[in-house]
C-alpha cells in the first residue's frame, strides 16, 4: 500500500511518537534486547546489567527521537551512551567480529523495537504507523552508524596503542659515530614514552661512552609545554651522565610556536636538522668534518 507524504504527517510528530513509544515500552524492549548477542555477550556478569545497558541505549534513542534528530549521528542524545557503545563494540571486536558484523548485530535490534512500536500504535491510522516505522528505521540506522563510528575509531585506537607499544619496545638509540648516539622520536611524546626514551638513551650513553646525544624531534607533530618539559628533563639527565644533548629537527613552524608559547630552551642546543646536529657533535669531538671543522684540517 502506498501512502502519500501528507498522510504520513510531518516527520517531527512521527519522530516524537517513536520517542514516546520507546519510553513507554522501555522495559519490554530492554528485556528482549538483553538476550540479543550484542548485549548478552558483552554484559556477562548478570542479566540485570545487560537490561540496564539496553535501557541506557533506549533512553538515548528516545531522547534523539524526541529532539527530532533521528538522522543525526551527532545528536546530543547519543553522547551519554557513546562510551558504552564504544566499550560494547570493542568487546565484540575482541572476539573477532568485524565492524560490519557488529553493525549487523545492531541492525538485528530493530525487529523487537518495530514489534513494540506497532503494538503501541495499534489504534492509530495506517499512515501514522507507517510514518513512525519510517522514523524508527531511520533512527536505528543512525544508531548503527554511531556504533560503526565508535568501532572504527576504536580500531584506530588499537592501532595507535600498538604503534605506541612498538615504539616503546623498540625505541631505537642509534650509534652515529664513536661517542655520538641519536634517538629519532616519532609521534606523541607523552610521559610514559618519554620515560622509556630517557632510560634507553641513558643506557646507550653509558654503553657507548657517548659524549653527545642527539634527540631528533622531526617526527614529533606537536611540541607543547609537556613535551618540552620531557625534553628538558632528558637533556638534564644526559648531562649528569656526562653527555651533551642536541635537539634536532626543530621545524620553522615549531620554532615560532615554541617562542610564542614562552618556552625557554636557552640551555639546550638545538639544530634544524639531524645532519646539522651531527656536524655540531663531530666538531665538538674534534673530528674532521668539512671546511669548518677545527679537527684535522689546519686553518
Amino acid at each position: 500500500m502506498r501512502v502519500s507524504e501528507q498522510q504520513i504527517g510531518d516527520e517531527w510528530s512521527s519522530a516524537s511518537q517513536v520517542g514516546q513509544a520507546l519510553r513507554h515500552r522501555r522495559e519490554q524492549i530492554a528485556q528482549r534486547w538483553a538476550d540479543a548477542p550484542l548485549f548478552r555477550t558483552v554484559f556477562t556478569v548478570s542479566r540485570d546489567e545487560a537490561v540496564e545497558a539496553c535501557k541506557a541505549v533506549l533512553d538515548a534513542l528516545a531522547e534523539v527521537a524526541e529532539a527530532g534528530r533521528v538522522e543525526d549521528v551527532d545528536a546530543p542524545g547519543f553522547f551519554v551512551v557513546r562510551e558504552q557503545l564504544a566499550r560494547m563494540s570493542a568487546s565484540r571486536a575482541r572476539t573477532g567480529l568485524s565492524p560490519a558484523q557488529i553493525a549487523g548485530e545492531v541492525a538485528a535490534l530493530r525487529s523487537s523495537a518495530v514489534e513494540h512500536l506497532t503494538a503501541e500504535l495499534e489504534q492509530e491510522p495506517t499512515a501514522v504507523v507507517h510514518g513512525a516505522l519510517l522514523a524508527l528505521t531511520t533512527l536505528m540506522g543512525t544508531l548503527r552508524l554511531v556504533v560503526m563510528e565508535t568501532a572504527l575509531s576504536d580500531g584506530a585506537e588499537l592501532i595507535n596503542r600498538q604503534r605506541q607499544q612498538l615504539l616503546e619496545v623498540a625505541t631505537p638509540v642509534i650509534k652515529l659515530w664513536d661517542g655520538i648516539v641519536a634517538v629519532p622520536l616519532i609521534g606523541t611524546l607523552d610521559s610514559a614514552r618519554s620515560q622509556v626514551v630517557m632510560e634507553s638513551l641513558l643506557e646507550a650513553i653509558v654503553a657507548q661512552q657517548a659524549k653527545y646525544a642527539i634527540l631528533d624531534i622531526t617526527g614529533v607533530p606537536t611540541v607543547d609545554s609537556l613535551v618540552a618539559q620531557h625534553l628538558m628533563k632528558t637533556v638534564a639527565a644526559a648531562r649528569l651522565m656526562g653527555a651533551e644533548c642536541v635537539v634536532s629537527g626543530v621545524r620553522p613552524a615549531i620554532a615560532q610556536t615554541i617562542v610564542q608559547l614562552g618556552l625557554d630552551l636557552g640551555g639546550v642546543v638545538t639544530r634544524a636538522t639531524l645532519a646539522d646536529a651531527l656536524a655540531f657533535a663531530l666538531r665538538g669531538l674534534g673530528v674532521g668534518f668539512g671546511p669548518t671543522s677545527q679537527g684535522a684540517v689546519a686553518r
Binding site: T222, D224, A253, Q256, L261
Partner: peptide, 30 residues
C-alpha cells in the same frame, strides 16, 4: 591525541598556514 588531530584537521580545512595550524594545535593541546 584525538583533540590535536581534530583541531589540525579543522585548521587545515580552514586553510590555515602551517605556522597557524601548529600554533592552534599547540594551544589546543595545552
Amino acid at each position: 591525541m584525538w583533540i590535536r588531530q581534530e583541531v589540525r584537521r579543522l585548521a587545515t580545512e580552514a586553510q590555515f598556514s602551517l605556522v597557524q595550524q601548529t600554533k592552534l594545535v599547540t594551544a589546543a593541546s595545552e
